[in-house]
């Protein structure tokens, strides 16, 4: 292992700082009005001023997202395994899944509201619906791309389908699965915020909607920052999990091909 040079390790921070500085100076230099694009310092102040509201709503958004994401993981795993297991199930579900995935999930929110009212549940379900698809596809891909020779080696020994699944299929699809979690958690946030800004009295999505109604533009941006922080934290968590669970795949260059 070679150590990453200092400059490379500092790069993320330096680039972020650079981005904020350019933003700050551009806003000040071009005298962009605050209600159009507030400078980072103004956003930071709003973040500080509205701290209790931001924390409370962030917490709600995070809960909704995680519950929806959890459902997506469970359901996505099961469906992915089923599709990878049987060609009949694959053939039968494929058009349904593609059709379902093609529906913009925002269009489902009114229906969810009709069924479940506004608030926690529609947000959870929107997060779930929007994030399970990549998990299914990735798990099924991992199973479907077992090398035929590997299958032959085991079958010639008298291995059953379940044996092949347990010994090869499932371990093999794990890197795909953990890889898909990064995408899924990001999408889950999208789902939650969509639902919150249409049908909720809580959450960051709702906070931003209210701030917009009251023309508190810095607070809108503060909401965005809160979402970004949550998103980055969860993404980081998933990336760490992926690395932990499937280190062999990254070291062997397996996940890349």
């Amino acid at each position: 292992m070679t150590r990453t040079p200092l400059i490379v390790r500092l790069a993320p921070w330096l680039f972020t700082l650079g981005f904020l500085l350019i933003w700050e100076f551009a806003v000040r230099g071009f005298k962009i009005p605050e209600f159009f694009l507030p400078a980072p310092t103004i956003v930071a102040k709003a973040f500080y001023d509205f701290w209790p509201a931001i924390v409370r709503n962030s917490w709600i958004t995070l809960q909704e997202t995680l519950v929806g994401f959890g459902l997506a993981v469970g359901f996505g795993l099961l469906l992915g395994l089923a599709i990878g297991w049987s060609r009949t199930i694959y053939a039968g579900l494929y058009p349904l899944m593609v059709g379902f995935n093609a529906i913009p999930k925002v269009a489902l929110v009114p229906i969810l509201v009709l069924w479940f009212g506004i608030g926690f549940l529609p947000a959870v379900l929107t997060a779930f619906l929007i994030s399970f698809f990549p998990i299914v596809v990735n798990v099924a891909t991992g199973l479907a791309t077992i090398e035929p020779e590997m299958e032959d080696v085991l079958k010639a020994l008298g291995a059953s389908k379940l044996d092949i699944m347990r010994k090869v299929g499932i371990p093999r699809s794990l890197p795909y699965f953990f890889g898909s979690l990064k995408i899924a958690i990001t999408l889950a946030f999208v789902g939650t915020v969509i639902s919150e800004s249409i049908a909720s009295n809580n959450g960051i999505g709702n906070l931003m909607l209210q701030a917009q109604a009251q023309f508190q533009v810095p607070l809108i941006f503060a909401g965005l920052v809160a979402l970004a922080i949550e998103g980055i934290a969860m993404y980081g968590l998933m990336a760490m999990l992926e690395k932990r669970m499937t280190g062999w795949a990254q070291r062997s260059g397996f996940a890349q091909n």
Partner: peptide, 19 residues
């Protein structure tokens, strides 16, 4: 009429499990 089970096989690709 079914996989013979008394055979061992090896191919051009080593097909080892990387994990």
């Amino acid at each position: 009429t079914q996989p013979v089970k008394i055979a061992g096989m090896a191919f051009q690709a080593p097909t080892l499990l990387p994990w």
